[in-house]
Each structure stands twice: as C-alpha cells, then as structure tokens.
Design a protein around this nucleic acid. Structure first.
Lengths: 194, 194, 194, 194
DNA sequence: CATGAATGAGAGTTCATTCAT
DNA sequence: GATGAATGAACTCTCATTCAT
C-alpha cells in the first residue's frame, strides 16, 4: 500500500506546513507535529526523522506549487507592466501577512542551517524571479511601456528591495503605505524617465 | 556597590556580545554565557533573567556605539559621494562577514520574538540610515555630484537593497561580485542619468 | 502447509544466526532480523516472539551440528595426541576469531538470562567435550603417548582453560602466542612428566 | 564545595555499584540509578554522562580496593601454600555467589564494548594475580612445599581455570563440589608430583 | 498465512531556573 | 551579593508488539 503511505506522508507534510506557518521553524517540535496530525510519536518518525527533514519536504512541496504561479500570469495577454504590477501586488499581500505564509519559517530555517545546502531553494527562487522580471522588463521596453538600460540590474534591484521589505515586515512590521511607496519608486524608475 | 554591580553587568553584556556574534541568538544558552563569563549560574540570573533580556541589553549597547558612526564620516570634508561610497564599502565588509557582526543574531532575535518591541532597534537604525543617506544625496545634488528627483525614495531603496543583500548573505551566501554589482547599480542611479 | 512453514522457520533461524554472529546477542533487535531476512515484522512474530526465543532456536540448531564434529576426528586413525592437538588447534582458531562464531552472542545470551535454562547448552557442550577429551587421554595413556593419573581432571582442566581463554579473547583480546603458550602448557602436563 | 561534590559522587558510585551487582550492566538504565540514589535526572547527569561512564568509575573504585587484598595475605607469616589456598578459597566464595559481586556486570560491560580500552582492567587484574601466584609458587618451591618447573605457566593455568569457572558459574551454575574438584586438581599439580 | 503501518512506553539528554549556603 | 548543586519539565528517538487488511 505504497499509495496509502504516500497519502499519509502528504497529509503530514500539509499539516506540518500549517504548523510551520503558525509557529515558524525553530520552535516547532516533533511533538507539535504529532499533535497537529493526531498520530503517534513513532508514527511520525516512520516518515520523517526530524523537523528539519520535514520542513525540507514542506519546502519542496512549496516549490512545486510556486513554479507555475508565474506561468499563469505570463500566459495571459496582459501587458508586461500589468503583469509586473500584478506580481508586485501579490508580493505585497504576502508581505503584509494578508495571506498566511511560510516566510518567517523559511528564514528561520535558513538561518539555523550551518551549511546551507548547495541547491538552495531561496537562491533558486530569487534567481528565477529575477529572470522572469528581467524578461518582463525587456518585453516592456520593446513595447515602449518601460525605459530601462539595464533590465537585469533593475530586476535584481526589485528583488532585493522585496527581500528587504519582507525582512522588515517580519522583524519590525511595515505599513501598507511603506510597501506601496517602495513599489511605486521602483515602477517609476522603469516608467518615468522620459 | 551599585558601581561594582554596574561594572559587572557591563562585563557580562560585552562578553555575551561576543558569544552572540559567534553563535547567533537562538542557540545561545544561559550556560554558554555563564561559561564565557566564567561566573556562576546564579550570578548571571542576578543580572539577567533570560538570553532575551541579555540580548536586548547587548542591542542597547550596540545602538549607543552605532549612533556616532556616521557622525565621524560626515564631520570630514569629503564629498557626499565619497561619504556614501565609504558607507557602502563598510556595509559590504559586514555583508561578506569580513568583520564579525551581530547581524545573524539580530535577525534571529527579531524572528523569534512574537511581538516585536514597538521601539524597535532595527527600525530605528534603518530610519536613521535612510535619513542620513537622504541628506547625503541632497547634498550631492546640490554640489552637482548626483542627480536625483526623490532623495528619500532613493535612500530608502538603497537601504532595502542592503537589507536584502544582508539576508541573502546569511541565508545563501553572496559573492563579492554580487554585492559590488548591486552597489554599482544603485550608485549609477544617482550619477549616471545624464 | 506445515512443510513450507517449517522451511521458512529454518530460513529465519539460519539468517538470524548470521546476524547474531556479527552483532552478538544483546544488541540485536527484531528489526535487525526482519531486515536481514527481508520479511515483514508481523511475519517474524508469527514464528518467534522475541530475539531470545529466536536465539534459543539458533542454539538448538547449533547443537545438532556440533554433535558430530568430534565424531569425524575420532573416526580417523590418527593417534590420540594428534586428535587432541587437532581439537585444540580448532579451538584456537575460533578463539582468535579467525572463523566467525556465535561465541560472543552465546555468552551474552547466558549472561542476560536471569534463570539459565536447566538443560543448558553450554553445560552440555562442556561436559561432552570433557568426556571426549577424557577418553582421548585414556587412549593416549594406553598407547604410551600420554602420562596421566587423572584423565578426567586433566580433561576438565583443559576445558576450563579453554573457556578462560575464550572469555579473555572476547573481553580483552589474546595474542596467538598467549593461546599457544597455554596449549603447550597443557600438553606438556600430559606428555612431559618423564 | 568540591568536597561535598566529591562526597556525592562517591555516594552515587557506591549506590550504582549495588545496582550493578543486582542487575548486571546491560540492563541498568540511568533511571535505575536515579531512583536508587533518589536524586533527580539532571542531578545524575551532573556527575556522569552515561551508565558506561558510571560503571567505569565503579570499576576504578573496585580496583583500588582490590589492590590491597593480596597484600594483607602476603604480609602475614603463613606459608605460600596456605596463602594460595586462602586465595583460592576466596575466589571460590565469589564464584559460588556467596558474596554478591560485580562479576556478571563486569563481563557484560566488557562484552558490550566494541573496542576494549587499552588499559583494560580485566587484563590488569588477571596479570597482577598471575604475577602474585607465580611468586607464591616460587616461594613454595624454595620452601619445599611445591614442586613446579614452570611457575609462571602454572600460575597462568590457575588463573585461566578460575576464569573458566567464573564464567561457568555465571552462565550455567557450578556446584561447590565442582569448584573444589578443580582447585584440588590444580593444587595437586603443585604438590603431588614427587 | 503475511504484511507493514501504527502504537506508545520508555530511554537518553539538555536547559532554564531555583535555593541553601 | 555570589555560588553552583539540584531540580524537573520538555524533547528526541527507538523498539517490541499489535492489528486491520
């Protein structure tokens, strides 16, 4: 019944995901997971040997879901600037914790790791996003929406600012106005230089 | 003996600071502090009730020292662009872990706190830096070194990028080239738009 | 299917035997057996309720095999002293762990048992060996190879020395020279008193 | 108060000693010790990190006590044969479990160790006893009590027989008669060959 | 008969925190 | 004030054993 087994594993990962979203990474214990899943201690260890292992699985699942997020947007026939604006709006939502997210847990996890795995999810996601944004900007330039001499640099700048905002939101809180202000500044850099 | 007491307290905070720089925040135990300070368990509790309390004191001490860092630079007769470049160079050093810093511990601390203190050090430092950079940019514009329509926006952009880079460095590592690239991009935004 | 059942039981016992030879008795878990046999947990419990039960079966199998070992030697036409020497040589081999054996596991098992079974394998084997050696010595005396006034006492002495050596080998290690020395001493007691 | 500390440590070792005498080595848990000593879990770990560590301390204490056992006998003006007889009588007492002993635990401990420490207590004690017995035999020969061409060999033979008997007693039980028989055999070897 | 997921008791270990001296 | 031994709660992890399929 490898099927049932896989199902249970998935159930644990999904339940754990919620726990991580609530409590972050560091403070979560195997007991927390066990209780959330309503299974036995030993039962959990059957599938995962530690919270780290479990969290990595949560992360992997996250990545799968994340991959097609962008696709959906690009698929439509919206203009590059509209797509970028949409992307930024969504980032804003997460930033302001309007939708629960693993954000905090992810940072805690990568902070706790002495040797970050080579194939670092955070890096991958960052680079992927930079790539997409760069393409978006280039497309925007072509269509006359944007003006930009260094699309890659601009894309990176956007992503670093977003990362900074994310951290700010987790460590001190940011107002919606503050986020808007940064997004606006960044967008003006692309549009406004006539 | 409030005097002796204060001295001991200071000694503990300074020793703890080193421990936090080495080990971060989360993994540091009271035992670690006790051993590093070579005092008794009970003795430590006389002054600090938890690592959190202790870390907050470390932070407070940090803040005092930090306040005058900028002053020194501004005092000189260097041009605004030179001062800014200097500031960025120093940030770069810390980013690349060329000098030991509390950076990681600070983030860990603010991540672990459920309710970040209102009077948040991180925010204060950030805002202070933004303010100084803004002034610097304005001075630079006046002197014709910079071109910038929104000095505050630019200052904030710089700081968010730096924060993003800092996080990147702690969670996945950043190359010197990557840091240089971002700094260059940011500086070009101020200089290059002829 | 009592036949198939018996076959499987035998398979388990034989596989377990190897495990016990490798790991001793105390540290072997049901999981170890299950994995070595590549059967299911429940499957194992169908046949054996514990490692103790299983080990007892291994021991029983051992005994069957052991019984005819001596026979083979006696059957030949070698002189008593040659047979005895051969026996001692083989014991030496086992002592020095030149051939894998259950030795350690057997001791561990009998140490762990609160109430050693009355029909104790160790005792049986010991007594049987004493008996054969006694006969050997008597035959040797008759043929003028040995001189011995108390063949049974000598036989027992030999066996206790061997047991002592075995223990020494498991608990602290013995050199080949040390074993040779003891064997020589014992043989000289039989031969050398001119 | 390193004094009080040392006292408590001694108390724990002595209490643990009793536990080991009762239960052997392998089955003893830290909890057993904690309960026997009526101290807290953490309190025990303050002194010993594992049952192994604790047992080693018990062993060390044992050794100290053991060292002077022989001295007492030798000091008197008894004849060598009388001293040897006394020694054997005491061994017999322990063998027959007439006095509680660590014997079983010691064997279990050395069986459980993968790599017996170089400075092996068992070996030391064995060698020390061999040495004393050898001297005893030599003295006996000089005084005309014993006849022996290889005192060291004889001493070793005696010790291996004793070890064999000890094991027999722990793994299958030995009768008093059986022990007497072996002792007699060994003594006759020293006396009877005229 | 056979499977293997699930259970839960229990061993080991660490740490913040207290308190008699 | 200062000490450091002592406490006990909390966590991790492993295993023998059971039971629905």
């Amino acid at each position: 019944m490898s099927d049932k087994s896989a199902q249970k594993k998935k159930y644990i990962v999904e339940t754990a995901r919620k726990v991580f979203m609530e409590k972050g990474y560091k403070t979560v214990t195997m007991k927390d997971i066990v209780e959330a899943c309503d299974i036995s201690r030993g039962g959990l260890y059957l599938y995962f040997g530690s919270t780290a292992e479990l969290f990595e699985e949560v992360l992997a699942l996250e990545q799968e879901d994340a991959d097609d997020v962008f696709e959906g947007k690009i698929a439509g026939e919206a203009t590059p600037s509209a797509i970028l604006a949409l992307f930024l709006k969504e980032q804003k939502k997460e930033l302001l914790n309007k939708k629960p997210s693993l954000g905090k847990a992810v940072y805690e996890y990568f902070f706790s790791k002495e040797i970050p795995a080579k194939e670092n999810l955070l890096k991958k996601q960052f680079d992927a996003a930079v790539y997409v944004i760069e393409k978006l900007i280039m497309a925007g330039v072509e269509e006359g929406e944007f003006y930009c001499e260094d699309p890659r640099g601009a894309a990176r700048n956007i992503m670093y600012v977003l990362e900074g905002l994310k951290i700010a939101s987790h460590t001190r809180g940011v107002s919606e106005a503050a986020v808007d202000r940064e997004i606006l500044y960044v967008m003006q850099g692309l549009i406004g230089e006539e």
